[in-house]
Simulated scan of single mutants.
Amino acid sequence: MDCHDYITVEPERKRGQHLGQEERGAIQQLRKLGYSLRAIATKINCSASTVLNELRRGTPTRKSSRGRAPEYSAKRGLAVYKANRMQSRRHHRILYCADFINWVVDQVRTQKWSLDVCVGHARLHRQFAENNIVCTKTLYNELAAGNLPLSVFEVPELLKRRASRKRGREHKRLKGRSIDERPAIVDERVEIGHWEADTVIGCKSGKEAVVLTLVERVTNNYLAIRIPGKNSESVIEAMEELRAEYGDRFSSVFKSITTDNGSEFEKFSTVENWGSSIYFAHPYSSWERPVNERHNGLLRQYIPKGVSIEKYTPADVLRFADELNSRSRKRLGYQTPEELFDAFLDSLYAA
């Protein structure tokens, strides 16, 4: 009985494909039979120039005028073809961007910039010619391949994993108005003046200084204030200092503040007496304050986990925040939070 699932006729070679072992064997035999270049090309369905190039690859160079002329060998042609293919790979772009790569390495190590910030900042300010800059993806690929003079531990953001969003536990009592009551305009990030707050601790054991952090959701302007302890009194004292700094404009600068349910924010609702709206995220739902959590992670580049904050002065903590505010951000079009927030204050006080 005939079987219709198999064929014995091999598919015809398509023009444009590289020559295979069978085509090279055909060239060798047809050449011995005296076929011309065009006749061989017609037989194996390729151009005459392809046959000529293959003959040149597979024919050894004649060393003297004596004896027979060297003939084409399909085996030799295949070997030369494979050797050429090994050398035909595209060279890494970073080999032609040494100045840019050296600058990136310096920014990562001294300024703690991410690779993407380096690329965006360099392009925005035209520090290098466009053909001397590689894209963010290329930099991360070269880092993963070990072709950059950096280790993955010098780019800590690369090692972070996205945390799963878990629903908060309902049994813990909120210390004020729920985030569910917060206006929708806050989520849209179109109006400046809405902040997120939290505290950053050093050592978990013992009573010591912590850092009160606030970040503006639109400009990403970051405030970091060293306070004596993780308690409500220290938090309120820090907020009173901010109120004294901005005076009558406090409620315009801090239109709303969203914080978590930590014990240090037990009395935070009193800030509403100054004209600001205070909201509390659901318990165990840090993802509801994403901007603040993100920036607290950046602060860990300066204050690692487990290191006592007592080792840092209030001036040190303020300097860390200033460095973060002077860092270009992709979400801001590679502008800095400092530039955008200063422009907001200028317009506020001008009005």
Score class of each variant (00 low, 15 high):
L159P: 11
N261C: 12
R90Q: 10
E191A: 10
V190M: 04
V117S: 10
P314T: 00
V317P: 08
F128H: 03
K255C: 01
Y349N: 09
K267M: 12
G67P: 07
P156C: 03
K330N: 11
R57G: 04
R57N: 08
K207Y: 05
H121W: 15
R24D: 04
K137M: 11
L55C: 02
I225Y: 03
W113I: 07
V105K: 12
S251L: 04
N53G: 08
T259W: 06
Y6M: 13
E293T: 04
V218Q: 05
M1L: 03
W195T: 00
K160E: 15
E264L: 05
K32Y: 06
H91L: 15
L324Q: 06
Q335Y: 02
S232N: 07
G229F: 06
A244V: 13
P11N: 12
E245F: 14
A351W: 08
G168F: 09
Y35G: 02
N45P: 04
D248L: 15
I27V: 01
L150A: 06
V190A: 07
S49M: 00
I40N: 00
Y349W: 10
E245T: 15
R165L: 14
K311Y: 07
N141Y: 01
F341P: 03
R66S: 14
L159T: 14
S64T: 15
S269W: 09
L30Q: 01
S308P: 00
K175T: 05
S65Y: 11
